[in-house]
């Protein structure tokens, strides 16, 4: 995990993770009901700026993830853009019919994907797993077995990464990579899956026994090494997010970039 973070000192890391989680989850619901294309455009721009300002990731990774969600957003808009209904046809080629209306709706869907992803990224790129799960246990009363279970699972991710490298090397040595064609690909995929599954199940079983050997009990009360509390940063965060969201709506009103204030209107 340390290789991912460039800095965990930024102030977004000091926000109570449960609050961050709840706020961002409620924003998801808000933007589910926005049909104004202008609002979505401005909001997307604002949150993308916010993401760059607050994330604690290494620079390259931050850009990489952003381009990844851009691709996803573009893909998610295509179905609506290419095949949606509309009267003002811009482009027509066999099954593909692009109309002004379908273009607007498609872009809105793409932007919604983008906003959801960028909000998720703001959360993920400013929260370390351990404080997050401690906060879930302390503020949201998530049962300890799920929280520690997830933490134990996090520990396995880098191991699985290393394992993938080993399996690939072994396949090369055994000559599995020399085979070409669909069947060989299927064989390789099967090998990766079987090996990784077998190793992971075994590891999970051993870890579970080791945790119980350390007297981990799912029912009894426990103390906590980290006390996740509240601070002024929580207030700043709420104000900032509210301001950013509100600004999105206002900018759409003041500087409408497109005529589509409700894409559902015919």
């Amino acid at each position: 995990m340390d290789a991912i973070w460039a800095s965990t000192e930024k102030w977004f890391f000091k926000i109570n993770p449960s609050l961050k989680f709840a706020t961002i989850a409620s924003l998801f619901i808000v933007y589910l009901f926005v049909h104004n294309l202008n609002t979505m455009i401005w909001t997307a721009v604002l949150f993308a700026m916010l993401y760059f300002a607050v994330n604690g990731l290494a620079g390259k990774l931050a850009f990489g993830l952003l381009s990844l969600i851009l691709v996803f957003s573009a893909l998610s808009s295509t179905a609506m853009v290419f095949f949606g209904k509309g009267t003002h046809v811009l482009f027509d080629w066999y099954l593909v019919v692009i109309s002004e209306e379908s273009l607007a709706r498609g872009i809105l869907i793409g932007l919604r994907t983008f906003i959801f992803s960028i909000l998720g990224l703001i959360m993920a790129s400013t929260t370390e797993p351990v404080p997050f799960f401690y906060s879930l246990m302390q503020q949201l009363k998530v049962p300890v077995r799920y929280a520690y279970g997830c933490l134990a699972a996090f520990r396995m991710l880098p191991m699985m990464g290393e394992e993938l490298v080993h399996i690939r090397q072994a396949m090369r040595v055994r000559g599995l990579l020399r085979k070409k064609g669909m069947r060989a690909r299927y064989e390789r995929l099967k090998r990766y899956t079987v090996t990784m599954l077998a190793q992971s199940i075994r590891r999970a079983q051993r870890t579970a026994v080791a945790m119980e050997a350390k007297r981990f009990s799912m029912s009894q009360s426990r103390t906590f090494y980290y006390e996740i509390g509240w601070s002024r940063y929580d207030l700043y965060f709420l104000v900032l997010i509210f301001a950013a969201a509100a600004l999105g709506f206002f900018l759409a009103f003041w500087f409408p970039l497109t005529p589509y204030t409700d894409v559902l209107d015919q």
Binding site: L151, R155, A210, R215, F216
Partner: peptide, 18 residues
């Protein structure tokens, strides 16, 4: 596979919490 936390201190703390 004996540990459930990412950091050494947290692992011992896990036992103390228990």
């Amino acid at each position: 596979t004996q540990f459930c936390m990412p950091y050494a201190d947290e692992e011992i703390a896990f036992v103390l919490e228990n």
